[in-house]
Nucleic acid binder design. Sequence first.
DNA 1: CCAGTTTACCTCGCAAGGCGATGGGGGCAA
DNA 2: TTGCCCCCATCGCCTTGCGAGGTAAACTGG
Lengths: 111, 111
Amino acid sequence: MDRELLKGSTPILLLSLLTEGPMYGYQIIETVLQRTNGSYTLKEGALYPALHKLEAAEFISSYWQTQANGRDRRYYSLLPAGTAFLEAKKKEWSLFVNMVEGFVGPAGSKG
Amino acid sequence: MDRELLKGSTPILLLSLLTEGPMYGYQIIETVLQRTNGSYTLKEGALYPALHKLEAAEFISSYWQTQANGRDRRYYSLLPAGTAFLEAKKKEWSLFVNMVEGFVGPAGSKG
DNA sequence: CCAGTTTACCTCGCAAGGCGATGGGGGCAA
DNA sequence: TTGCCCCCATCGCCTTGCGAGGTAAACTGG
């Protein structure tokens, strides 16, 4: 996957995932990996800064949760403002895709 | 249009436009502006560096042409390697869009 | 004739994102 | 005790788009 194309897609991806419920960082990476059949490895250097930025903007919130092991995980969950932001981002995404495809020609529904 | 989303989309857009024939910089900007109904102004600071990079990679070539006015324009045209590169980029684009939409849910065909 | 706009090229410094590398620490199994 | 997996995170680098700035010639209106 082209690294430049990916730029800017992380927030919408993260917010979308979190609509399914709270998740922690490592889980997000694994989920993305599995759902894309291994074709997209969301990198830690992209994930954590994006998560923190989303939290600073109060689109998501985090809480630490201790497991039976005694180990801690940081869970992130969507806030109402995040849901609204996601909707705006979706519109932007749609505009963007339609714009590019207006020049390139529609993408096949399968890559 | 989100500036971060745009990143990486310029080469595929440029190459796609050039499949229609040679074009010069200013014309590209105007064409993009018109075809998007004014919603996307391709900036010079993004255009020229992208064009030069594509040329350095030998995906496109340029030539100066003097008009009746006596003024010069630099036209860019697609090279065979550029056509091949476009095809690869299109596949990448398709993969990218399908990937994101796998999480976000499909974009409406109209924004 | 001259000012302002349009056409036309281009570069530079800045901000922001993803990536690779690196680092810490705990749990678990051979 | 060694090594792997889980889990968090940061830092410097590279690349991109953008705003601003620069040059220059032709056209337009007064």
